[in-house]
């Protein structure tokens, strides 16, 4: 794979997708705020869809191309939308009930769990 191939349309899609996935995973792990985490998951999702699109083009190049990945990306977006809605609702409820917008620390110590519940 030469450097030139990165600057074709599918190549750009692929690189952007990979970047989005990287940024998303980073944000998901590092950022404590739940809204950021939700956005991060969506970043990963978009990255995967972009990559899928790029891959599809490579399998069957040309305008129109292979319709199967397109159908799947659309399904994936719908699923991601519902998941985001669910996550947002839960976050809202959490902040209303407890005033927190971040998850409590990892439940490593079971004693912590007992106090909470």
């Amino acid at each position: 794979m030469s450097v030139d191939s990165l600057f074709t349309q599918p190549g750009l899609y692929g690189v952007t997708g990979a970047l989005a996935i990287g940024i998303g995973v980073y944000g998901l792990i590092v950022r404590p705020h739940l809204v950021r985490k939700i956005i991060a998951v969506n970043m990963v999702g978009s990255g995967v869809f972009l990559l899928f699109g790029a891959v599809a083009d490579r399998a069957a190049p040309g305008p129109g191309g292979d319709p199967v990945p397109h159908a799947m990306i659309i399904t994936g977006i719908v699923v991601a939308l519902s998941a985001t809605a669910l996550a947002a609702t839960l976050t809202l409820r959490l902040s209303r009930e407890t005033g927190r917008t971040a998850l409590p620390p990892e439940p490593e110590d079971p004693a912590v769990q007992d106090k909470e519940s």
Binding site: A87, T91, R93, L94
Partner: peptide, 17 residues
């Protein structure tokens, strides 16, 4: 319950990833 909200969110994030 408030405790289950956080648990559910963590579950959801893991599952989505």
């Amino acid at each position: 319950k408030a405790g289950t909200l956080a648990a559910a969110l963590r579950y959801l994030l893991f599952a989505l990833l």
